[in-house]
Design a protein around this nucleic acid. Structure first.
Length: 284
DNA sequence: TGGCAGGGGTTGA
DNA sequence: TCAACCCCTGCC
């Protein structure tokens, strides 16, 4: 059993906001709140006040948990110096404790390739299907690792379709081939400027600009990545261009986001996105 | 119970 | 620029 004292952290907001797809919320009657994986180590988790508690194998130590949930002094510093914007301030108050996680590159890439026109529960189902059908069993447990690109590249497109990927099977299959043949150097992506890293990722099948920015934000520590999906278009239009009847184009909104939120606009997007969907829309 | 619309995007013409 | 791509969910 591993216990951590945290500040400004909500397990619930962080795991339910649609950035990671390998966690399952357990029923209220259960003694644990969440079941999932931290870097392919299966674990159970719950939060009581500012204490988070994990049950997992001996490999699961505090350093891994802090890395996965970005529970570091550097992140505390970033969070306390986000720009002073009234909507962002409201979001930070109402979904307090939300954090970006730090996902493994390949799993994050595969998840977001599967995410197009899919809702969060469906992406979670796909993640689970890929693990249980093609992942290595984790010894001593009934859980499975996320299958590597090399493993997925040995399968057929039909195998992937059977995991409920639909037309995305072709994209994931091709991307797995590309990655297993060294098309992407993951480590160098973190050092590249955002635009260059995004272009690099878009060489993979099924990865467009939106998916590339998600991968860079949730796996690559690019806090300036700003994924534009339909929800971000909606919230930017409604909150920041309330008088415009016609939605501004992406370039205009991207410039606005840069001006408002600067180099940490990815975190601002992360808060606004989750808050807009779970609080703002429901209160109207 | 069944039909229908719509959903967190990318591709290829 | 736009149709096509799968399939699940919610709604009627």
């Amino acid at each position: 059993m591993l216990q951590l004292i945290t500040k400004n952290f909500s397990l619930h907001h962080t795991l339910s906001c649609g950035q990671t797809f390998c966690w399952k919320q357990l029923p209220a009657s259960a003694s644990w709140q969440w079941q999932g994986y931290i870097y392919d180590i299966p674990c159970l988790a719950r939060q009581v006040g500012n204490v988070i508690i994990f049950e997992g194998s001996a490999e699961l130590d505090e350093a891994l948990v802090r890395r996965y949930f970005n529970l570091t002094p550097a992140w505390d510093q970033i969070l306390s110096s986000l720009p002073d914007d009234s909507w962002l301030n409201q979001a930070r108050k109402e979904v307090a404790g939300l954090r970006c996680v730090h996902e493994p590159w390949w799993e994050c890439t595969a998840n977001f390739i599967c995410s197009s026109l899919k809702q969060i529960p469906q992406i979670e189902q796909i993640n689970q299907n890929l693990r249980s059908r093609f992942g290595q069993v984790i010894s001593g447990t009934s859980f499975y690792r996320f299958p590597s690109a090399e493993t997925l590249a040995t399968l057929s497109e039909k195998d992937l379709r059977d995991c409920k990927l639909g037309y995305r099977a072709k994209h994931l299959f091709r991307a797995a081939h590309q990655v297993s043949h060294g098309a992407i150097s993951w480590n160098s992506l973190e050092q590249m400027p955002l635009q260059q890293a995004s272009c690099e990722l878009q060489k993979l099948a099924g990865v467009g600009e939106k998916v590339a920015h998600c991968i860079l934000l949730y796996a690559g520590n690019h806090l300036d990545a700003f994924p534009f999906d339909v929800w971000v278009f909606r919230l930017m239009h409604e909150l920041y261009y309330p008088k415009r009847r016609v939605m501004p184009d992406q370039k205009t909104m991207d410039r606005k986001a840069q001006k408002l939120f600067g180099a940490t606009r990815g975190i601002a997007q992360h808060y606004l996105f989750h808050w807009y969907r779970t609080c703002y829309m429901k209160s109207r």
